[in-house]
Design a protein around this nucleic acid. Structure first.
Lengths: 349, 349
DNA sequence: ATGAAAGCGCTAACAG
DNA sequence: CTGTTAGCGCTTTCAT
């Protein structure tokens, strides 16, 4: 548990100055091959390893290779896929990702943001759970680019990569309406989140255009985890009259809904060919469409409004990289499309 | 885009020495309340933010609050749930997680490990894809604790949190054998991974104990992604005679298998009560059991050998924290249990 | 209660 | 090609 060797020790062992050792190891050049070899072997012998934080300190503010990501919880596939896409793209440019989960707690988010900024991250990607972001205005002036993902900044202009929540939700509602449904239950996440509000709005737009004025009677909100969602769906289905269809506004809620309405055993299917033949429609069960694709959505036959979280991460990385590259144009806002995938849970009756 | 204010600037603005400013802001004490307030307001005015890396440099080696995680790919729920459990536990102790994905590429892993060590992470949690780890021996002497997760260290003694792969796979095979199956296909991940090998071994043990000598005829390996797995399963089912059951050795392979054999539409189920009544057995389709729980495994009715990735992360955190706390006892090895969850894909005929 | 000086490990700037 | 000096932003002495 001896402490780590410094460059000075390597220099001493190889009988050169610290600067020469530095040059030899960082490949700066202008070092005799023979000297370089001597320094290298001394470094190996001591188990020397560059102290990157010291280097960054000396080189000045903007040399860190760290990018921070603030998101809800990595266990949610939406966030982990976002993180995956982001990390992959950053890595191609020599940057590393440091993640922090807020659990949708604004207080935690604030604290974690501070912590990442103290670490002098090169930039910050944030799926924010806070109501406003004015406090970050000062940071931007000090040169830390922010990219907002999934949810837009409030009281702050900054780059953002968002989803077409409103359009996607509207499409979901229209799809159910086309199938003849009128009593459509809608179960949503935390009501304070803009994504939730946008999805409800899009839904409302379609419902009202179709002349369904009392859609709010079947709206349930703040179902933030799978269990709450399952209970909410059960409650909704126990109403009289019960809804004939459901729109669940994110992956966890859809999962909860499937537990409530769809806990059916795996149907027998001897081979792939057999399976293909079994394309029976959903019949008269409760129809369902969810926002967000699910891992086994295709196997289960769940209709969804799909989009690509990895792509969102890649886009965020690209916006950030452009800023780091000196782009000081106006804030950009990228809105990623969603697409309806019709599967058996909304098959025509 | 002005550069960040330093403590010296805060000190200058408030008319005190750098050290006093430091004391005031870091809450060290021994500062007049009035002075402290003055420094604080100067800091606010300038938008001062502590440079944590400078602090850590001055305070000496072991003060970083960063812990590194090396894993395959965050998009895989196994890794993201591991990361989630790990991060949550670390956060409770003031530590932050920095993640790096290796994509199961040993060369990348080596490079990323170096990078994390250069950043002077406090410790490293690694789901390694490398064949041996002797090169890390030197690091441990310099005081960087390693915790191996999912896969054990080779040529190195270090703490590890592993799964009972052998026992779980054996249980899976026994379960299928109990259901009367003899021709059981087994589809595995990269053959060089120890987890894969252990699972095949456990499977083999049960098969041979049951007198099925030619089980290897139905073994397919290196199905590392969902598409490859799907093709492998199709190939297996096209054999003559075809296997009557499948054991898929991880979550991605199980997903591929479900796509190959189970692409059946969602069955109609009006209410939860209805659904409960529909408990028909799997019938004469190909039976299936997978290693790793799936997100919608219960809804789909897929039998699995389940375990808890989050718990693995928490355990890893605890081992690491103990080391950071000075524990220098012998290397610990925690083996987490698996459990069989019987669902409809292996229901009795 | 406050300050001056030194130094963490490294590299930029300027010699030679 | 190599070395010296200075300093990144902070905190640890050690004074006062």
């Amino acid at each position: 548990m001896s402490s780590r060797p410094s460059l000075a020790q390597v220099a001493a062992l190889s009988g050169v100055s610290v600067k020469t050792a530095s040059r030899a190891l960082s490949g700066e050049g202008y070092v005799a091959v023979e000297t370089k070899a001597r320094v290298q072997s001394a470094a190996d012998e001591l188990g020397y390893r560059l102290n990157r934080t010291a280097r960054e300190l000396r080189r000045g503010g903007n040399t860190s290779t760290l990018v921070g990501l603030l998101s809800g919880d990595l266990a949610n596939p939406f966030y982990s896929r976002l993180a995956s896409g982001l990390e992959r793209e950053l890595r191609m440019h020599g940057l590393q990702l440091i993640t922090a989960s807020t659990d949708e707690n604004p207080e935690w988010e604030r604290r974690l943001t501070d912590s990442l900024l103290e670490r002098r991250v090169r930039g910050l990607v944030v799926a924010s759970t806070m109501a406003e972001h004015g406090h970050l205005a000062a940071e931007r002036r000090h040169g830390s680019p922010f990219v907002f993902v999934d949810r837009p900044p409030v009281d702050l202009t900054a780059d953002a990569v968002l989803l077409d929540n409103r359009g996607g939700a509207k499409r979901a509602a229209e799809h159910l309406l086309e199938r003849g449904h009128r009593r459509i239950g809608i179960v949503g996440d935390l009501s304070r989140l803009s994504t939730h509000q946008d999805r409800v709005e899009g839904f409302a737009e379609a419902m009202e255009a179709a002349g369904v004025a009392d859609w709010r009677d079947y709206l349930l909100e703040d179902a933030h985890d799978v269990d709450k969602a399952e209970r909410a769906v059960r409650a909704l289905l126990a109403r009289d009259p019960a809804p004939t269809a459901l729109f669940t506004t994110n992956n966890r809620i859809t999962t909860g809904a499937l537990r409530a309405i769809g806990h059916t055993p795996f149907p027998a299917a001897a081979t792939a060919k057999d399976a293909a033949d079994k394309g029976t429609p959903a019949g008269k069960g409760t129809a369902l469409i969810g926002f967000d694709e699910l891992d086994l959505g295709d196997v289960l036959g769940v209709s969804v409004i799909a989009h690509d979280p990895e792509e969102m991460g890649r886009h965020a990385a690209r916006l950030l990289l452009a800023r780091l590259d000196g782009d000081d144009g106006p804030a950009r806002r990228v809105v990623l499309p969603t697409r309806l995938i019709e599967r058996s849970t909304t098959a025509p009756v």
